[in-house]
Design a protein around this nucleic acid. Structure first.
Length: 282
DNA sequence: GCGTCCAGGTCTACC
DNA sequence: GGTAGACCTGGACGC
């Protein structure tokens, strides 16, 4: 329930059964994508595929991707220690919240983040659906599709993104980004392990057309860097409702509100303003 | 039915 | 470094 990514293909979320379904890409052209169903039983996470046989290599790839998507290797104790003194935030520890769902690749998260900018959430879901259903490799068993590769996206003309994906002015951004990544000129996956400071990495991200202040902040959170706030219209409106008597708050006021959480302020903010999502569901 | 606004913003030109 | 105006889409809203 951490954020809207669960509703963007090739993720699907079944609220009744608390199951995440996800199409994962396997290595090599001979291995078509596979659909996995993921749910939780206590501290156990079950991952089921619809395929009868998986090679060791495929199983290892699926395990790696699931660990990455759910951040199972991310150390949360420092974040919990940072929020523990504040009674308004100790629910985060009780719920074990804070692991923001992410895609198996930085590229996918980057494309999706551009799809969230300057439009309604409904339009975001439609753009992502268009990309996945038209360009993603199909799963043999169920007709679902993987997220398209940079190569598949680079092969399409800009008009495809404008006319079919309905991406509007973002069409040129997708074409250019996919081409740079597919050619090897831009290695966005390296951002995960970059040793650049957050400010330096943010500058690099903003060199991608379509990535501005909000989009870069959002990507940094997905990479595991939480010292940016990622303020967008929804966050500002929700902050106003929760903490400013419904009145629009200056960005500096929002920053001051979460400053005490230091390098965890972005994650503390996000947990705070989505608290009702999780509490309603629980 | 039509016009306007704006949503999980960014880019460019200009100062 | 700061800011005005343009930019696609599509749903909500007022008239």
């Amino acid at each position: 329930m951490s954020h809207g990514w669960r509703a963007l293909l090739p993720f699907e979320f079944d609220e009744a059964g608390w199951t995440i379904t996800r199409v994962l890409t396997l290595e090599g052209d001979r291995s078509p994508p596979v659909t996995v169903h993921i749910n939780f039983h206590g501290d156990t996470l079950d991952v089921n595929t619809e395929r009868r046989k998986l090679s060791k290599r495929d199983a290892a790839r699926i395990t790696r991707d699931v660990r990455h998507m759910f951040r199972l290797d991310e150390e949360m104790s420092l974040f919990y220690a940072a929020v523990a003194p504040d009674p308004d935030f100790d629910w985060i520890i009780k719920e074990g919240a804070g692991r923001l769902l992410r895609s198996p690749t930085v590229y996918e998260d980057l494309v999706k983040t551009i799809c969230t900018t300057n439009c309604s959430w409904v339009l975001t879901t439609k753009m992502v659906e268009g990309l996945v259903k038209h360009l993603g490799r199909p799963v043999a068993e169920d007709g679902r599709h993987a997220f398209p590769t940079p190569e598949a996206m680079a092969a399409e003309p800009e008009s495809f993104y404008r006319d079919t994906v309905r991406a509007g002015y973002r069409a040129g951004y997708f074409k250019e980004l996919a081409g740079r990544v597919a050619s090897g000129e831009l290695d966005v996956e390296s951002w995960l392990t970059s040793e650049l400071s957050t400010a330096e990495l943010k500058r690099e991200m903003k060199r991608v057309k379509g990535v501005g202040e909000y989009a870069a902040d959002n990507l940094l959170k997905l990479l595991g860097r939480y010292d940016c706030l990622a303020l967008d219209s929804w966050v500002r409106a929700t902050f106003a409702r929760l903490h400013n008597k419904g009145r629009t708050a200056d960005d500096r006021k929002i920053a001051r509100h979460y400053a005490r959480f230091k390098e965890w302020r972005g994650l503390a903010l996000w947990c705070d303003i989505t608290r009702d999502w999780i509490e309603d569901e629980v």
